[in-house]
Amino acid sequence: MRNLVPVLAVLGAILALWYAAVAPMNIRGALDQAERSGAVVVPEGSAVRARTGTWALVFGNTEHLGLAYALDRPRLPTPGQVAHELWKTTGEMALNGRAMSKRSLLYHGWITLQSTFWGFLLGTTLGILGAVAIVYSRVVDMSLMPWAIISQTIPIVALAPMIIVLSSQMGIEGRGVPKAIISAYLCYFPVLVGMVKGLRSPSASQLDLLQTYSASGAQAFFKLRLPASVPYLFTSLKIGVAAALVGTIVGELPTGAISGLGARILIGDQFGTPLAIWAALVAAAVLAGALVTLLDLAQRVTLRRMGMQG
């Protein structure tokens, strides 16, 4: 809680900077619009203005500055415009009973969330299984671990279109599966690394103690290694879920998807509606925040029940 005041102060400063930046960013568009509607603009003609400095335009046309904050298609929308657009495509539509309409961000967020969930599930499963294999088999450790690291240095976006082509050729309908694969690709690695660390975290003396109890391998795994790895697991799950969301949006961006938050960004770009892009970005940020917070809560509850954290 002691961080609340500084965080709010920094957020306020960011908002103030944002508002201040709107005028110079949008001044050209605003002056073009003002001139078309017959107002007097200094200097006249957008060709002349293209050679004039931005600040000269801002201070030469102070009476038109208000327009820069109310453009339909701004280069940089104000936070208020973004919030309004976001409300218009979520809350307002929900109130009108059209929460799942194709124009609603709730619908697109739901699509993205589904793919993220399956990708997260797949990636986490692969990560945990891989970690168990690595901890228990030296061959797997030696041959798989370097490739796991290399796999993360390969930009997944390069592969994304190929994954979609391949899965559509293999007769998989829709984009859910390829998107989930892409997000699993980004999500498995933090889980793998965290779980390897976690499963190896019991000390030699703890393992020896279990041996003196003549515990079997399975018992040692379920009673010592697995519980010991839980804190590591949750830390990597939080990174993993954020990565899975990035993966899903990356999977939606370059591939001509029509639903999902990434697709909203793509469509907003193609139709020249920047407000739609910004609203989708904010929605994605909210989604990411919600997912990480949810896992954080799960972590606190679980660790408290396990007696690992006061």
């Binding site: 500084p6 990174i239 907003g268 920047p274």
Partner: peptide, 21 residues
């Protein structure tokens, strides 16, 4: 104290989405 939580949050966001902007 103000920037670290915000930075941590932003680092987890899908920033690639700003590409069209």
């Amino acid at each position: 104290r103000g920037l670290l939580p915000i930075g941590n949050f932003v680092a987890a966001l899908p920033i690639v989405g700003i590409a069209p902007i």
